[in-house]
Amino acid sequence: MSIVAEECLVLSNEPVSSDMHVLVFHSEKIARNIVPGQFVEVSCDPERLLLNRPFSIYDSSQSTLSLLIRRAGKGSNWLNDIQVGKQIKMIGPLGKGFSIGQGRGNLLIGGGCGLASLQLLSKALHQKNEKVDALFGFRKVEDIPIQVIRTFSQTASELITTVEYGSHPKTGNVIDQLQKIPIQLYDRFYCCGPISMLKALVPFLSERCTEVSLEAKMACGLGVCYGCTITTLSGGKRVCFDGPVFEMKEVDWNAM
């Protein structure tokens, strides 16, 4: 498996919630060997922004890759406004993805744009006839990317969405919902979302087989600059190269 730099054509750019878009790119090289949980470094607004921006790979096929992007800053705003037909430079696929094992059941836990790294995982688990359930949390009803949730429902057996504010069948955050679920029925947990959500999950899941996908500011995304190092029980680790997926119990959450 190797990483490549590639110019990727924007095939579509669709809003999926109040602040998220799904962008589909044509990719001959990067799309071919993606492991769920990996990311790409994307050249965003290169005239104004110095560094590339890391984004989880949301979906892929033989010749396309998709990103689920929330408007969160100059790079992501620029990308969400990109027009179909533009060419964007990317480097990827990068990082260490999720590990896929056999078991009684897998629970995906996502918050906001954290769903981005879980879609390919859900598909991969489903393909291996693994049982997948999902619990996704959002702040407001209008933040729910309905189209994205629909795609998840093709591979996940049970899918719970919860919102912190507004009228929705389930309310509260993912921790509130997790406490209502018999978690002993699952033997693998995969989490991605804001750092506050991941930290709140630690008391419930760190003793179990749990993987988390972390977000970090990066300069290179290639394991070279050590700009994204985090503290783990086995010393400093680079989110871009040793991660972004880590075992929950490996991370020093007090230092995060």
């Binding site: 922004l49 500011k217 300069a219 600059c225 050590y226 700009g227 400093g236």
Partner: peptide, 23 residues
């Protein structure tokens, strides 16, 4: 050397300040 605490990077449109700390 373990290097410096996060954040280690700060970016402007034409510059990058790093505080890696020789990890």
């Amino acid at each position: 050397k373990q290097g410096n605490p996060q954040p280690r990077l700060r970016e402007g449109s034409l510059w990058l300040i790093n505080s890696i700390g020789l990890e």
